[in-house]
Amino acid sequence: MIAMTVPERYGQSVLSPDWHRERERLIAMAEVADRTTTRVLHELGLCPDWHCLEIGAGAGTVATWLAGQVTDGSVLATDIDTRWLEPTTAPNLSVSQHDVVFDPLPESAFDLIHARFVLEHLPERDTVIAKLCRSLRPGGLLVIESIASFPVDSSATPAFRDAMRAIESTLAATIGTDSAWSRTFPAPLQQHGLAQVSASVHIPATGGRNASAQCWSHTLTQLRPRIADHTPEALPAVDETLRLLDVPDFFDFAFATAICWGRNPELGSPASND
Rank of each mutant, 00 (worst) to 15 (best):
R21E: 15
L26Y: 02
I167G: 02
A258E: 02
R35Y: 13
D229M: 15
T36L: 10
H121E: 11
P7N: 04
Q69G: 10
A148E: 14
T231Q: 09
V201Q: 07
E145Q: 12
I129S: 05
Q12E: 15
G208L: 11
I167Q: 01
R9E: 02
L220R: 01
V201R: 09
R125H: 13
L46R: 03
L223V: 04
S198A: 15
T71I: 14
E43M: 11
V128T: 11
F250G: 07
G268C: 12
G58W: 02
A199W: 08
R39N: 12
L189N: 04
H202D: 13
M29H: 09
T64D: 09
T206V: 14
I203F: 06
C47M: 12
Y10L: 15
G207V: 00
I55H: 01
A3D: 15
S94E: 09
W19D: 08
L93H: 01
I227D: 03
I227G: 06
N273M: 14
P138T: 14
I80Q: 11
E124R: 06
V197R: 03
Q191G: 12
I113L: 04
F255Q: 02
L220A: 07
E233W: 13
L244C: 05
A172T: 04
Q222I: 11
V118E: 03
T71L: 10
E8F: 13
G11W: 01
P91T: 15
H230N: 13
A59K: 02
T157S: 05
R209N: 12
P158H: 04
I144N: 01
H192K: 07
F150D: 15
I144A: 03
D79M: 09
I167L: 13
S135D: 03
D99A: 12
V62I: 14
A57K: 00
L141N: 02
R39H: 13
P87I: 15
S135N: 09
V75T: 04
S155R: 05
D249H: 09
T231D: 12
S217H: 05
D111Y: 07
M164W: 07
P104D: 15
P87C: 15
P186F: 02
P17N: 14
Y10H: 09
N264S: 15
A173P: 00
L220D: 06
C52W: 06
Q97P: 03
A180N: 08
R226N: 09
L53Q: 01
G60H: 04
D246I: 03
E145P: 00
T36K: 12
G208E: 06
A187H: 09
E31V: 03
F160E: 10
T37E: 10
A148P: 09
D72C: 12
S179T: 11
F150K: 02
L244Y: 05
E107Y: 07
F110G: 03
G207T: 00
H20T: 11
L26Q: 10
D246T: 13
S146I: 05
I2T: 13
D81R: 11
T82Q: 10
L15V: 01
F117I: 06
H230L: 14
F255N: 03
L119Q: 04
T177S: 14
A234D: 04
L41R: 00
S212W: 06
L15H: 05
I175E: 07
Q190G: 09
Q12C: 10
E240S: 08
I147C: 09
